[in-house]
Simulated assay, not measured.
Amino acid sequence: MSESLPLFVDAETLQARLGAPDIQVVAVDSASDYANAHIPGALQITMADFTASDAPVAGLLPDDDALRDVFSDTGLRNDAHIVAYDRAGDGQAARLLYTLDAMGHSAISLLDGGLAAWHQAGLPLENGAPQAGASRFTVERQPERIADREWIKTHLDDPDTGFLDVRSAAEYAGQDVRSARGGHIPGAVSLDWNLLKGANGRLRPRSELLELVASHDVQSDREIVNYCQSHVRSSYSYLVLKYLGFDKVRGYPGAWSDWGNADDTPVSANTDDANGQ
């Protein structure tokens, strides 16, 4: 495989590598929107293809066989560096990349700014229906990249574990309630995922990100669990922490839709937790 792409890749860098045999681009997009405009040669997949629900919980990881089949049907390859993009603020593409990483495929990149950034760079787009893909993609679940409710309950008082809540401040405080209960996981730090992006919707410079996470007491020597409502926004923060060099990072599939709808989980609305106090 030739030189790999960075975890967050800009449109011009990706365009220079389009067509390389070791690069696959995949749009997390509806079939109709993909047909209207997509990056040349991109594959297509929807969020519903690689997430599962068990109402009222959303954003769960499907089982290994289901993910193997959908990634194979999409045409993804284990020997490729997979670049994902969307047209919805990068969260859906980030969730695909988190899922691939959790399934053992770490050769991944996010197109920073998504389809909008590609368009703004004046780069060419294609139209037409998705082409049927076919491959034999294999998955190997990586437990150290996944947190579930029981794991979190056993680590609530672990000084080596931190919880990063990337929902809005109102969700964190229990004022915007989207599950049976509002609030946050006790001790979780509040850092709205939008603060990770600049005014143009793209990733902030590395130096600014390092300053931001340090000011919120997000420490690289701790194991950091990222969560939001259904692990879309927090898939983005998961990638950001990996980009910053954090090597102990977990995502929480199901996230607050799981924790806030359970009847045996502690919930806090104490805003003193917000910056790690």
Rank of each mutant, 00 (worst) to 15 (best):
Y252C: 04
L203C: 11
D29K: 13
I23N: 01
L7A: 08
I224Y: 01
D22I: 04
R87W: 06
H155W: 00
N194R: 15
C228E: 03
N78K: 04
E208L: 09
P21M: 00
A20S: 13
A262N: 03
V225P: 01
D148Q: 11
T99W: 07
G260C: 04
K197M: 15
F50C: 07
D263H: 06
D258P: 01
D157A: 13
G276W: 02
Q120L: 08
V166P: 03
E144T: 10
P56A: 09
Y172C: 09
H155P: 00
S168E: 06
A31L: 11
S230N: 13
D64K: 08
I23G: 02
F50G: 07
D273Y: 11
L110K: 04
C228W: 02
T265R: 03
A107D: 14
D263T: 12
G201W: 08
I152R: 00
E223K: 14
D79Y: 04
P186L: 07
Q24M: 04
N127L: 05
I152Y: 02
S230H: 05
W193Y: 15
D160Q: 15
D49M: 09
R202H: 10
K153I: 06
R77S: 13
P62W: 11
L111P: 00
A66K: 14
Q175V: 04
T46A: 14
V189R: 14
G198P: 13
S2A: 14
R178C: 02
V213Y: 01
T138Q: 12
L210C: 03
A84L: 05
D10H: 14
L43V: 02
S72R: 00
N78M: 01
V166E: 08
V70H: 02
W256P: 00
R202E: 14
E211D: 15
V25K: 03
L100I: 10
L100M: 08
E3M: 14
L241G: 05
A132Y: 00
G128M: 00
C228P: 06
S257Y: 09
T74I: 12
R181Q: 15
I82P: 02
G89S: 10
